[in-house]
Design a protein around this nucleic acid. Sequence first.
DNA 1: CGAGGCCTTGAACCGGTTCAATCCTGGTGG
DNA 2: CCACCAGGATTGAACCGGTTCAAGGCCTCG
Lengths: 246, 246
Amino acid sequence: MTDEVLGGVTSSLLTKLRRSDRITEEEADSLDRAISDVESYAPRSIICRAHVDQDVSKLLVEGFVSRQCTLVDGRRQILAIHVPGDFVDLHAFVLKYLDHDVVALSPAKLAIAPHQALRKVTDEEPHLARMLWFSTAVDAAIHREWIASLGRSAMARVAHLFCELRARLEVVGLADRSGYALPLTQVDLADATSLTPVHVNRTLRQMREAGLLDFRSGRVEIGDLVGLIRIAAFDPRYLYFDRIAR
Amino acid sequence: MTDEVLGGVTSSLLTKLRRSDRITEEEADSLDRAISDVESYAPRSIICRAHVDQDVSKLLVEGFVSRQCTLVDGRRQILAIHVPGDFVDLHAFVLKYLDHDVVALSPAKLAIAPHQALRKVTDEEPHLARMLWFSTAVDAAIHREWIASLGRSAMARVAHLFCELRARLEVVGLADRSGYALPLTQVDLADATSLTPVHVNRTLRQMREAGLLDFRSGRVEIGDLVGLIRIAAFDPRYLYFDRIAR
DNA sequence: CGAGGCCTTGAACCGGTTCAATCCTGGTGG
DNA sequence: CCACCAGGATTGAACCGGTTCAAGGCCTCG
């Protein structure tokens, strides 16, 4: 990565990884050099298509993207929502193809990491390789938490999603205790929680009336974070922001 | 791994990984040497407890185990079911601790891989490291498929679980088209599908009456695999049994 | 023969869905 | 400048898949 335009595209990822473990400047530079380009995507455009062989992986720099698949009845299921700093389809580095689509939920910028470059870097820097492996393992932990979340009430599911996004956005400086920008529609929330848009709407109204949270025009305004966390039964340890040893 | 008793504990894992990529004899031997011991667990005994630092990971050799957590209301949620050949808590190698419990569903034998030994082996053999990374990425893919499955009807969920277990067991020689041994209770199935035991029972009856499948006394007898796959909308590509290049 | 797990079934209930109509808002073209 | 339009948000009312509660039944094992 030498181009001026690419400056600092890995910084959010590094910030996040450094919450868990030390990363040397040399390692950070190596990772930076694995980035070949940055691409922009319009909302709803497909970033990576399921079952197509990949020779690059993409790191989300700006905006929101989802992993999603289309069910037999045509409904869309959102499997994960990614925020800046997430190495969205790093899974494809070891899997070769993905089992789902990656789609932009908002305007988004992604940095491109060719697998050839990633392979060189991970072969030469085993600790950095473990950190990247770590970040895909955290993705898996988030998936598991979603599975548990889906077993619960509509209110708990929606609250859990808001808590998770807040915690993940806070690490990269895009949220605080009072709220955050979230350019999604109620339909997006419905597809992410396996609820109907109608019921998401009613649930959001309940949350607003209870003073917990107000989600309106692309922004989450949190009224009572403690109450929200309680309803969601949100325990952030699954995000692994607190590992220590190298 | 020199002890006679440990002979071949990695063979199911290798069989599975070799469905996706070549693994040399030297790599296989290295992996074998990372195993220090084999332990037996009784049904319901805890194999790995959530939020406790781990210095070993465990490979399932025999029996069935689940990843599970306990929800706030005391209900148990099964997050994944593992079959022989699965490196169950390999995630702990990079995460250091797990966010959920690993519990034996049946009598089970697990091979112990100290993290120190895994670290040596993965530092020395980058390709083997990528294969282990690959296996955790497949775990994540399975989690995603469960998320999608939970968005569907009770019948589809249960059918999907049976299809997935059949496909995964077949790879390690423990299932064929006609059925397989599955020493779980209806309560286990309920906790894995986020249904009530009562409704699982009714769903199983429907499946039996439709000639799709008979689950009884620890064995799944498949009457109509094609029909089952259709109802489950089961597409096995997410299991990644078909990768090619090294 | 008794006890404890597990499976089975019925009946009432309820959280979330479905269908349909209306409202609101920001952007566009006449 | 305003009428129009499209996408998203909102609300009401009927409906239904799955839950809940409760009662038995059927094994296996001591």
